[in-house]
Every structure is written in structure tokens, then in C-alpha cells.
């Protein structure tokens, strides 16, 4: 199992291949389209993340000290970004998730291509992921 940092570094390396923003966007769109189907029963208001212009649902489960995330959005670029977040965070322990320093978004140059509203939405997602991890850590 790779660490959160190793996964982030891998994503940064992948994005290095892209020549311009349109290739990055196209990649996010493709990731969004390939995001595993979200369980309809989890598409509930209590899973909605506030602060996004598009709707984003985030659901988590906890088993064997491992947190699994699944998420969905009605906007495809948001879904692509979510897909990266899930790849980074899902399958790790609460301690690892809480301690993670998320630097890949800036390093892949996504920040400068996200509008303020999208950037805020992204921060809300990361915050919510960490809140879930904190809750599971407390449970343990």
C-alpha cells in the first residue's frame, strides 16, 4: 500500500506530462466519467458538502481501521477532482488522513485554473474528509 504522500507524488508526475490546461481539464473530465457509480441510497442531503456551486456528495465507511470514501457530483470537473481526492485519501487509516499534508493540488497547477468558488469547494471537500477521519479516530 502506497502512502498518501507517494500517491500525491505520483499524481504530480502524471500531470507533468500535460502540455497545457486543456489537457489537464480533459484528464479531469475523463476521471470524472470513470468515477465508480455512487450508491443511490447515499445521495442524501446529510452527505452534501456545503460551499460548492455544484452538488457534491461524500460518503465514508470504516472497517479494519481503514476509511473508504465514495463521492459523486452533478458536475463532471468536480467529479474528476473528487476522483483524485478519493485516490489520495481512501484506504488509509484515520491517523494517516488527519496527518496528511495536501500539496498536490497546488503542484499540479490546478489552483490557478480553479475559480475561487471551485477552490473553496475543494477546501470544503478536504475538510469534510478530515472530519470523517477525526470521527473514526475518536471511535477507535
Amino acid at each position: 500500500m502506497q502512502s498518501i504522500q507517494q500517491i500525491q507524488d505520483q499524481i504530480i508526475e502524471e500531470f507533468d506530462f500535460f502540455q497545457d490546461w486543456s489537457e489537464k481539464y480533459q484528464y479531469l473530465i475523463d476521471l470524472g466519467k470513470n468515477l465508480p457509480e455512487f450508491n443511490d441510497s447515499n445521495r442524501v442531503d446529510s452527505n452534501l458538502i456545503k460551499g460548492c456551486q455544484s452538488k457534491v456528495w461524500l460518503n465514508s465507511s470504516f472497517d479494519n481501521n481503514i476509511v473508504i470514501f465514495e463521492a459523486d457530483s452533478d458536475a463532471i470537473i468536480s467529479k474528476g477532482i473528487i476522483s483524485l481526492l478519493i485516490r489520495v485519501f481512501s484506504g488509509h487509516t484515520p491517523d494517516e488522513i488527519i496527518a496528511a499534508n495536501i500539496d498536490f493540488i497546488e503542484k499540479i497547477g490546478l489552483n490557478s485554473h480553479l475559480s475561487q468558488t471551485r477552490a473553496n469547494g475543494l477546501l470544503s471537500m478536504i475538510k469534510q474528509i478530515k472530519i470523517y477521519a477525526l470521527a473514526y479516530q475518536a471511535k477507535n
Binding site: 455544484s54 468536480s78 475559480s115 471551485r118
Partner: peptide
Amino acid sequence: HHPSDIGSILDQYGVAVRT
């Protein structure tokens, strides 16, 4: 297509619209 997806891409082309 979600309006925010269209808006984000238009912004990359320098076009400012509201979504």
C-alpha cells in the same frame, strides 16, 4: 452539462460568464 463545467472551461478561454 453542468453550468459550472461550461463556465470553468470558458474561463480558461478568457471568457467571463456567470454560472
